[in-house]
């Protein structure tokens, strides 16, 4: 009985804190994405460089480690029984990637464009008993070009 109560409390705490956290993060991400629309990040590079004079090229990267909350872990655990899409983890990865891209853009300073962007994800497993508990790291890197306007 006690264990069940603790479990329910953890779920409740995870749900409220996790939801608030996520909403706050998404709001911040969206605002910063708006601000950085001026600096596009693209996955190709040749097509954009037809007759521009490039002043500077440098490697930039950004990373973010995001942890999943208890409620989502529980949902994912349920999903593992029946199979199917694990919605609760989708937003986790989405947040990590978008945050990483934003940090990369912030690292690029006043470059004009970031070309050849690559995004990688890796999980950082927790040691010990709670194998389910995960956090993901997303890293985004690309070449920031300063173009003469």
């Amino acid at each position: 009985m006690e264990q069940l109560i603790i479990f329910l409390i953890l779920i409740a705490v995870g749900y409220t804190a996790g939801t608030i956290n996520e909403k706050k993060h998404y709001k911040a991400i969206e605002a910063r994405e708006q601000a950085f629309l001026i600096m596009p990040a693209v996955t190709f590079w040749k097509a954009s460089m037809t007759n521009a004079v490039i002043l500077k090229a440098e490697l930039v990267s950004g990373n973010a480690v995001i942890a999943v909350d208890y409620f989502k872990q529980f949902l994912a655990g349920l999903r593992k029984i029946f199979g199917g899409p694990v919605r609760s983890y989708e937003s986790l990865l989405d947040r990590a990637r978008r945050e990483a891209i934003l940090r990369m853009k912030e690292a690029a300073g006043n470059a004009s464009i970031i070309v050849n962007v690559r995004i990688e994800t890796s999980t950082i497993g927790q040691s010990g008993r709670r194998q389910n508990a995960t956090c993901v790291e997303a890293i985004a890197y690309g070449t920031a070009l300063t173009i003469e306007r």
Partner: peptide, 17 residues
């Protein structure tokens, strides 16, 4: 592990990596 309860960014790990 505390953060794994409430979710969110792990600043320490981000810096470390």
């Amino acid at each position: 592990s505390l953060k794994n309860l409430i979710g969110g960014e792990l600043k320490g790990y981000t810096e470390l990596l």
